[in-house]
C-alpha cells in the first residue's frame, strides 16, 4: 500500500483530505507543523508528500527543502496545496520540483490526478502546470 504524508496545519482539512485519501486506498500519515513533518517523513517513509504552503514554524517551501535534504524523502514527489492566491507561490513550487500545485478548495479528481501522476512520473521530470 502506498503511503501519503499529509502536512497541513488546519485540522479539519487534514481530517477531510485524510478521509478522502484512505477511501482511495492510501495509507495516510499526518503532520501539522514543520518539526513534526520532518519526524513523520523519517518514520513513515512516504511515497508522496502533500504539503501546505502556509505552516506554523516555517513555510512549506522551507519544509520541502528540508525534506529534499533527508535521505528517505530526497526524491519523494511533492504536491503543494494552498489557499493563497499569491502569484509567486506557483513559481517557487515549480522551482522546487513539485509535481502539482493545488489551490484550495480543490476537488477529489484534481487530487487523485495529482497523486497518480506523482506516483508515475516521480519528482524529477515532472512539471507543475
Amino acid at each position: 500500500m502506498k503511503t501519503i504524508l499529509l502536512i497541513e496545519d488546519d485540522r479539519k482539512i487534514t481530517m477531510a483530505i485524510g478521509m478522502r485519501l484512505r477511501s482511495m486506498g492510501y495509507e495516510v500519515a499526518t503532520a501539522a507543523d514543520a518539526v513534526t513533518a520532518i519526524a513523520q517523513a523519517r518514520k513513515a517513509n512516504p511515497d508522496v508528500i502533500i504539503l501546505d504552503i502556509n505552516l506554523p514554524g516555517g513555510d512549506g517551501f522551507i519544509v520541502a527543502e528540508r525534506l529534499q535534504s533527508l535521505m528517505q524523502t530526497s526524491a519523494t514527489p511533492i504536491i503543494f496545496i494552498t489557499a493563497s492566491k499569491q502569484e509567486n507561490l506557483k513559481i517557487r513550487a515549480r522551482e522546487l520540483g513539485a509535481v502539482a500545485f493545488l489551490e484550495k478548495p480543490f476537488d477529489a479528481t484534481a487530487l487523485a490526478d495529482a497523486i497518480e501522476s506523482a506516483l508515475v512520473t516521480g519528482p524529477l521530470d515532472a512539471v507543475v502546470g
Partner: peptide, 9 residues
C-alpha cells in the same frame, strides 16, 4: 478559503 476547502471536501 481554508475552512471552505474543508467544508467542500
Amino acid at each position: 478559503k481554508t475552512p471552505l476547502a474543508a467544508a467542500r471536501e
